[in-house]
Simulated scan of single mutants.
Amino acid sequence: MQVLVTGGSGQLGRALVPALQAAGHQVRQMSRRGTGPGGVRGDLATGRDLAAAVGGSELVVHAASDPRGDPWQVDVAGTRRLVQAVDRDRLQHLVYVSIVGVDRVPFGYYRAKFAAEQVLLASGLPVTLARITQFHPFIDEMLATARRGPVLPVPMGWQAAPVDVAEAAGFLTEVAGGPPVGDVVEFGGPEALSAADLARAWAAAREPNVHVVSTPLPGKLSAAFREGSVLPSARAARGRRTYAEHLRGQHLSA
């Protein structure tokens, strides 16, 4: 199919584009600058060039997001602009890349992602909402940022099920090639780990002199992470590559 990937230049997009191409699709990747092979210009925040970028697409994988900027403008209003721009006579499937827990975690970015899901469900388009757990490199980044010299404080009791980026791209490629479900599908890592376990594994591999300290963190957000709100449900599909294998640079055999 003729496929458009929004956010094609991001971490997930860089794995997703070749996965879709390997499945036989003709892929264009949309970004504000339109750079790179198969790049087309389109701006979700303003709507500029959006209709031209989306026009003719039979499949859209909507992976663009703005967690560090204004997600309400890009993720929510931008998704609304995307809905208005697609060719409804040609579009067969729109897959939206979301996050496990957006419906349960009281965090502004998650609320924006959940609102974008609602925009799509109300659009009348053939959609699938693909919620995925945190990627391995995101865990690395969070732990590196949290480090304070020889000490790495982590929230006590928080849980996560991090997943391999390439495996997430493979899952999305399978979902995109199937029929729209008009609902949520989930994909998560192979194991649920506490923040302390993740931090100790990261420290052993990257910063062996760092001491991990679990710190109680009050509030509703912390309670949601302790209660497992970002863990995939029992029905979720699961990746195979563990966080420990990621830290060792170990890849799975086919």
Rank of each mutant, 00 (worst) to 15 (best):
V95F: 10
Y96M: 10
Y96S: 09
Y96P: 02
V97S: 01
S98H: 12
I99N: 09
V100G: 01
G101F: 07
V102I: 10
R104S: 13
R104D: 04
R104M: 08
V105E: 03
V105C: 03
P106G: 12
P106F: 07
F107E: 12
Y110M: 13
R111G: 11
R111H: 14
A112M: 01
K113R: 14
F114S: 03
A116S: 11
E117H: 12
V119Y: 02
A122F: 03
S123A: 14
G124W: 07
L125A: 05
L125S: 04
P126A: 07
V127N: 08
V127S: 02
T128P: 14
T128W: 13
L129R: 00
A130I: 05
R131C: 10
I132N: 10
T133F: 12
Q134C: 07
F135R: 01
F135S: 04
H136D: 06
P137Q: 05
P137D: 04
F138Y: 11
F138I: 13
I139E: 04
D140N: 08
D140P: 02
D140M: 00
A144E: 15
A144F: 07
A146I: 04
A146N: 06
A146T: 09
A146Y: 03
R147N: 01
P150A: 14
V151P: 05
P153M: 06
V154Q: 04
M156C: 09
M156R: 15
G157A: 15
W158C: 06
W158S: 01
Q159I: 14
Q159E: 09
Q159P: 09
A160T: 12
A161L: 03
P162N: 03
V163L: 11
D164W: 08
D164V: 11
D164A: 14
V165F: 04
A166P: 02
A166R: 10
E167P: 08
E167M: 09
A168N: 01
A168S: 15
G170C: 08
F171E: 06
L172H: 06
E174H: 11
V175F: 06
A176Q: 04
A176W: 05
G177R: 07
G178T: 06
V181S: 14
G182A: 02
G182W: 01
V184R: 02
V184Y: 00
V185R: 12
F187Q: 03
G188V: 06
P190K: 06
P190F: 04
E191W: 08
L193Q: 14
S194G: 15
S194D: 08
A195Y: 15
A196C: 07
D197E: 15
L198T: 01
L198D: 00
A199Q: 05
R200T: 15
R200E: 15
R200Q: 14
